[in-house]
Amino acid sequence: MTHSIEAKLTELGLSLPSAPAPAANYVPFVQAGNLVHVSGQISNGPDGLITGKLGVDLTVEQGAAAARTCALSLLAQAKAATGGDLSKIKRLVKMVGFVNSGPDFIEQPKVINGASDLMVELMGDAGRHARSAVSAASLPMGVSVEIEAIFEVV
């Protein structure tokens, strides 16, 4: 799968960031058996943190783009967890997405689709996953999106 994910990233003009360091007292991932649990990855683009509330400061499209940055960070952490070998990733099992939302915003699933769609685009059927997409009154450092994931590895 390494070749196909990396080839797809190149085809899309994307690259994985360096695996972000934890911002507090936790580890970026934990492997338990054949599952790698990746801690929440926050929306962070080339210009820094992507902040703001969906439905107040950001549109659904901007939120989906922020969620895509989370997906790239999730894959970067999974790559670190597998010693740099993405071919050890068998599938994406689950994602949980948190959306920094205004009080009347109800499009959280459309925002998290930014990450889900990218995972399927990069991994094919192995990128299809169980998922939750929930609203949050605020997120760390004011970011717009945070997503955690579970990957199955071989």
Rank of each mutant, 00 (worst) to 15 (best):
L49M: 08
G102R: 10
L139Y: 02
N113D: 09
F98M: 13
S135P: 13
S43T: 02
A64G: 14
K53G: 02
S132A: 12
G102Y: 13
D85K: 11
V96Y: 11
G45A: 04
V143M: 01
P46Q: 14
D117T: 11
A66C: 09
G33E: 14
R128F: 04
V134A: 11
D47L: 07
E121W: 09
V30S: 10
K88E: 10
R91K: 15
V38Q: 07
S18N: 12
T10H: 13
V30L: 13
A149D: 02
F151N: 04
P46R: 12
M141L: 10
V56G: 06
V99A: 05
V30M: 08
D47P: 00
V134C: 10
P17L: 07
L9R: 08
M123G: 04
G142Y: 02
E61M: 07
V30D: 07
F29Y: 14
G13Q: 04
D117E: 15
V60E: 11
K90E: 14
A19R: 10
S87T: 14
S43P: 06
I112G: 01
I106C: 11
P22Y: 05
F105S: 09
M1P: 13
Q62N: 08
D117W: 03
G13T: 05
S18H: 10
V56H: 11
P22H: 09
P20H: 09
G142F: 01
V154F: 12
I106Q: 15
A7Y: 09
P109V: 00
S116N: 12
L16M: 10
S15L: 07
V111C: 07
R68P: 00
I150G: 00
L58I: 02
M141R: 09
E107L: 08
P109I: 01
I50E: 01
S135H: 09
V36F: 02
G48S: 00
S135W: 03
V143Y: 00
Y26H: 11
P109R: 02
V154Y: 10
S87K: 06
S144D: 04
Y26M: 05
L58A: 01
Q31R: 14
I50Y: 00
N25A: 14
S4C: 09
K8L: 10
S15W: 06
S101A: 15
K8E: 14
L72A: 01
E146F: 04
L35F: 14
D85G: 09
V93L: 04
V153D: 01
S135I: 08
V96G: 09
N100E: 06
E61K: 12
Q31D: 05
A80I: 08
G83V: 10
I147M: 05
V153A: 02
M123H: 04
P140Y: 01
G45C: 02
V153S: 01
N44V: 06
L122Q: 07
G84F: 08
N34T: 15
V154W: 08
N34H: 15
G83I: 07
F151Q: 03
N100A: 08
D57F: 12
N25I: 06
R131Y: 05
N113W: 01
A137V: 13
K88V: 05
K79I: 03
V120T: 11
I89P: 01
